[in-house]
Design a protein around this nucleic acid. Sequence first.
DNA 1: CTGAAAGCGCTTACAG
DNA 2: CTGAAAGCGCTTACAG
Lengths: 336, 336
Amino acid sequence: MQTPTIRDVAARAGVSVATVSRVLSEHPSTSAASRQKVLSAAADLGFRPNAQARSLRRTRTNTIGVLVSDVRNPFFAEIAHTVEQTALSHEMATLLCNADESTEQQDHCLDLLVSQRVDGMIVTPQGDGSGSLREVLSLGLPVVFVDRTIDGVEVPSVTSDNRTGIVEAVQHLAGLGHRRIGYVAGPQVTSTGRERLAAYREAVADAGLDTDPGLVFEGDFRSASGVAGARALLALPDPPTAVLAADSLMTFGVLLECRDRGLRIGADLSVIGYDDIESFGLVSPPLTVIAHDPSRMGALAVDMIRDLLAGEPVTSAVLTSSLVLRGSTGPAGGTR
Amino acid sequence: MQTPTIRDVAARAGVSVATVSRVLSEHPSTSAASRQKVLSAAADLGFRPNAQARSLRRTRTNTIGVLVSDVRNPFFAEIAHTVEQTALSHEMATLLCNADESTEQQDHCLDLLVSQRVDGMIVTPQGDGSGSLREVLSLGLPVVFVDRTIDGVEVPSVTSDNRTGIVEAVQHLAGLGHRRIGYVAGPQVTSTGRERLAAYREAVADAGLDTDPGLVFEGDFRSASGVAGARALLALPDPPTAVLAADSLMTFGVLLECRDRGLRIGADLSVIGYDDIESFGLVSPPLTVIAHDPSRMGALAVDMIRDLLAGEPVTSAVLTSSLVLRGSTGPAGGTR
DNA sequence: CTGAAAGCGCTTACAG
DNA sequence: CTGAAAGCGCTTACAG
């Protein structure tokens, strides 16, 4: 037998489908008697409401689309997890898509989410706001950007302050006597990549440190580019005494390269990472990092989507980032 | 204006909705002329098919539910990522849920997935197969278990051989002269936890090593229990000279504790981890691990769901696990 | 409080 | 090849 429908429940309870619907969706206008009959009939039959049918009728799916660059990145995994849990607590489902740092795949995902008629989307955007993203926005679908934004695209967002942490990191290193600080930058097609690099440049200049452009290596937010960045920087005629990376995966790559070269972190090379990822705890000494809060970002993004759906005004949020001092930095030229 | 429907397209193209539907779903019986008119009308209007309506009518959603214990666990993130990408390549969406290692939450997620009428589910199950899981199965919904299984529940699954890797690891350590091998076990309410522990016990006995039950600490697949396990084992009057952990997060915990105690891995304590997680590369020397293939598991699981949907027979798959020798083990009592 | 009826946006036999 | 019509499983004004 097929999954029972509301009709089957109505028949068994001896009431109309309208009454069944009202009882099941907790509409106030129902008598205790029918409530009773319906509930027990539904239980007997093992009735499972069909969300598809309900959505079609209500023109609302109770589903939110989540588009991240890659769940395998711990930072985004944390966001995805929190979004899912928060949504679940409001009886909403989440449709997860990975853009894999590809604009083409991002478009594909957006199309899918639109077809699924998600009520809103939480996205870590990339690219210039053309393609499917533009279409989605013109549809008036509630969208919240998380972590990243797109210039010229007016969408509520929850991001981190990409400046303070970097500035604190540079000042801290300057205080330790470092004059040449290597920087593994994020891709300049992302807002986070751009803002963090700008902050680095500004802080380096303000502190009167070496502004040699060779100290900046542009990576792509993947670990391999962290490795490549570390190699390039350490191969300079006058290599940096400290290295800063613009996200967790690239930090990871830098650390891998240090391990391969047998460099003692904090002594041979000072390293400051980005994102307070649990696995950085494996490094010895513990890594000094620029921390922000992906979990809070995810939770806030869901709140914002819910506000948008409720027609309430929302304002973008910028969370703080800050330097968490641990043991991976030391005086310049320590034991070299 | 609302999102255009098939009616709007029909009106603009000057054909019936039936024809529009046929063209859009690539039904063979359509003339080139109407195809042309429909396609351009759809494009003009920016028509987006409503997956909800289609699903209701077709009684098929083209969506597959994915229930993992926790996406923040790199092992499951990898599975989730592959499942999503593979599904996407077949134009299917994935609904992701995290059970957070809680049977209650697992039930909640299953209910949600049923209501969403996913075509099938890929789940990393836990518990005894009662509750919502039993209901779901009695519904006849295609389900594939991944990584874990449940005793007495007949569901096609793709798992790893939980025995070989462990046996190889124990033999390897025995060959290095270790007599007392500590084991941080997974929760015994999971099939993987049970099978791996059984393999450890068998291998230890076969190699004639110390079978002291105190050498086994039962963790819960979270990093904190790896820390606790390492502490408990190292606090024994006669502590083990090598430690093996039953999953990535607990391995992680063991490594954290080693770092905190300043133990030199491979010299002061031999360590073998489970899962070939990228972040284990941060450890020095590189970690010897028992590796299996989450990505392949995810891809296979999708194939199996598709076969089930197509009414084809499927057989469970057991992938291999094996020891990957790197540098984290050394002779027993090395430099103690 | 309750029921009959219309309709959400599609698909698909059934005729032609 | 094409159209009219029924129907997927719900919800919700509209009467009563």
